[in-house]
Amino acid sequence: MTSYLVLLGIVVCFSAILALALNFQWGLGGMVNFGLTGFYALGAYASALLMLRAGANSFFAVLGAMAVVAAVCGLVAFITLRVTEEDYFAIVTLGVGEMLRLVALNEDWLTKGALGLTGIPRPFGDVIAPENYQYFLLALAVVLLLATLWFLNAVARSPFGRLVRAVREDDVVAATLGKNVLWVRVRIFAIGGGIIGLAGSMHGFYYQYIDPTQFSNIVLAYGFMAVIAGGRGAHRGAIFGAAAVMVLLEGSRFLKDLIPALDSDQLAAIRIIIIGVGLILLLIYRPQGFMREYRLQTELK
């Protein structure tokens, strides 16, 4: 049981990091990233490939993955931010996310396509004894989560953060003040992208095996649910939300034991139906959940 909780804790941590990234791009930057799933996959694959193909150690692989996703996000923002409508930006990012997933699925020479990448090394995997490793990974995950929290808070409180808020309130005013509005937004989206890359790398460390089916739009739903469930209050909310969502969804695995009559396809279908219903219920009954205002956390545990 402890083992199960430890593993759950790890998943909650990197899911929370992903939710924080979404929250950062959306809540602070006002840019909703419907391509979250694709960028997450990009981070996971970049990190895994750097380790498996280029022989990098886990530290540099993570940095590399963060850089790759940040760069791609920055590029997407740069090209797409000509679009002023929020909805259209969402559609374009959705398309980009889909494209990334397609590449993962089809470029066999790079990603092994549907077969996926196996044997992803873990940080300090050969140094720590296998039976203790999960505790280490949990500790590492928590540290990374706290680091991310601290970093995003620092950005939000910095002059840059104030600038971003000013731009979001009224970009015409900001532009006349001589601030390069586009560049500000690109940077926010890129920073968020880096965080997504971090989450993706951790995904790879946890499962040690990645394939395209792990990156369906359910990931996007998880992200939104975490951000919405968390409610107002920037970061703690996202973490709480991620935890709640994961617990709900992991818990639904036990359905199998409760209803033996259903086959695995049907159980998988029910789980996804629960996700969909949960998402809609959260949207309806958590009106303050969809954060438009990025609240600053003044204290940090």
Binding site: V32, F34, E86, D87, A90, N217, I218, L220, A221, F224, D263, D265, Q266, A268, A269, I270, I272, I273, I275, G276, V277, G278, L279, I280, L283, I284, P287, F290
Partner: peptide, 30 residues
């Protein structure tokens, strides 16, 4: 219930709805 909330909320809701409907079909017919 979400009519007044704006495009993004409605888009996310439609995403969730898509999951539900597709998997109802999957549940019924495999």
């Amino acid at each position: 219930p979400l009519r007044e909330r704006g495009g993004i909320t409605l888009m996310v809701a439609s995403l969730g709805l898509g999951f539900i409907l597709e998997n109802i079909a999957r549940f019924a017919y495999g």
